[in-house]
Simulated assay, not measured.
Amino acid sequence: MVKPRTRRDDRASIILDAAESLIRRSGTRTLTIDAVATEASLSKGGVLHHFASKDALISALAERKLKEVKEDIARHEAEQVPGPSALPLALIAHARQVYADEEGFPRALLLASAENPEAFAGFNAFLGERLAGFEKIERCPGIGAALVFSTLGLLITRTLGFHSMEGPQLERLFDGLEKVARSVTEAEIPPDSCGRE
């Protein structure tokens, strides 16, 4: 049974929506409790009742965004054939979907959250749990984790503005990642081709 949202949940969501809107328009430099209160049509005390500081607000925004990312990756993962390629393929599918989207908000949130590592705890646990399972089922240990971190690196460096690929170049990159991800489950990979003695 789905738990009904309370007024408190609604108010917190309104505040987070207002903070996200401010970040999208102007980055984190305009993110103050006063500005969020104005954007949300609430009093400063109303915002502080839910989020005691700007850091708490940024943590909540990061947690909400990472929850959405986790849910999307888990949805893509459920669509894959179970095995070591499921998580890399799910992450690649997610990356294809979001690569060019929401440039301003994730960049500002990533930079702001870097000073608040606890905001990433849930996502770290999500990845850690899946990465730990790779070693038990991979024919060539390390490939799945390398694909996961390659894809995350692609998204993070894009978010930070280090590169921006489009069209055929981007499609070739994603196709190549998918090809490697699918190859880690191919039964014909001989164990000695994995670099193990």
Rank of each mutant, 00 (worst) to 15 (best):
I189C: 12
L48V: 06
G83R: 09
R158G: 01
E118F: 03
A181K: 02
K70F: 04
S53C: 00
L31T: 01
R75H: 11
A90G: 03
V148R: 00
E135N: 06
A62M: 15
K3M: 09
I15D: 01
A12S: 14
G45C: 02
F149Y: 14
A37T: 06
R8N: 13
S21N: 11
A18P: 02
G46R: 07
G153C: 08
A12R: 15
C140T: 04
P168R: 11
V2D: 13
A12Y: 01
P190N: 11
P117A: 08
T30P: 00
H163M: 08
K136F: 00
L155Q: 05
P82T: 14
K67T: 14
V81D: 13
L154T: 10
E129T: 13
A121I: 10
M1H: 12
L177W: 04
C194W: 07
G133P: 01
G104H: 08
A145I: 07
S183P: 00
G176F: 04
I73S: 01
A90T: 08
A112Y: 01
G144M: 02
P4S: 09
A100F: 01
E68S: 12
R11V: 14
S59H: 10
R107K: 13
A93S: 15
F149H: 11
E39D: 12
R172H: 15
K3P: 02
G122F: 05
E103W: 09
H76L: 05
E63D: 13
L66N: 13
E20P: 00
V2R: 11
T159G: 09
R64E: 14
G161F: 02
E77G: 05
F126C: 07
E171T: 15
S59K: 13
R107Q: 14
